[in-house]
């Protein structure tokens, strides 16, 4: 087995703050020009700088799904995404799903099936479910369980979540 010295281990780096960078993001349909530091995650940008606190932080390490948002229609973990990297992208958060007073079918279904308790994982679950519907790969109940497993619900509302997603799948056409 080959075993050569390949990269230098990273040493200590100089102390200082990163410069701000300009990005343009379309968030829930509104285009925003922003100056952000590269170390700001998309999640922190939403919560701490734009007051869009609907998107939750449950771990900050990609391990829970609470921070799920849609980027160009695809569900991702915003905690492991640098805001600067999404320059030019369209971001949809839980705040952007309803049309005025009209809730998104997934939101309706979550209420109807009591698919939550404390509600903290819920925005992530809902965005994840919308992403799942867009993807169009869930055919069976077990598919839903598996494809929703990136969203932990500590309250254990899984039975309701599955029922809600099943209902929403029937109502929504992919890529709606």
């Amino acid at each position: 087995m080959s075993s050569k010295v390949l990269t230098e281990p990273i040493g200590d780096v100089a102390v200082g703050l990163p410069p701000l960078q300009r990005v343009t993001l379309t968030i829930n349909g509104a285009e925003k020009q922003l100056e952000v530091a590269p170390w700001t995650s998309l999640l922190d940008l939403l919560r701490e700088y734009l007051d869009l606190t609907g998107t939750k932080k449950g771990c900050d390490h990609g391990q829970c799904g609470a921070c799920t948002v849609l980027v160009d229609g695809k569900r991702i973990n915003s905690c492991l995404t640098l805001a600067v990297m999404k320059d030019g992208c369209e971001i949809t958060t839980v705040e952007g799903l309803s049309k005025g007073d009209q809730l998104h079918p997934v939101q309706e279904a979550f209420i109807e099936h009591d698919a939550f308790q404390c509600g903290y994982c819920t925005p992530g679950q809902i965005c994840s479910a919308v992403g799942l519907i867009n993807e169009g790969h869930a055919k069976t109940t077990d598919d839903i369980r598996e494809l929703m497993s990136g969203n932990i619900c500590r309250c254990g509302a899984y039975p309701g979540i599955v029922a809600a997603v099943e209902q929403a799948l029937k109502v929504c056409q992919p890529n709606q």
Partner: peptide, 21 residues
Amino acid sequence: TSRVDGRAKVTGEAKYAAEFN
């Protein structure tokens, strides 16, 4: 009965301790 706080929770309006800016 559906949760009376359901709407707040599914729309992201419900605010938790770290969300009062």
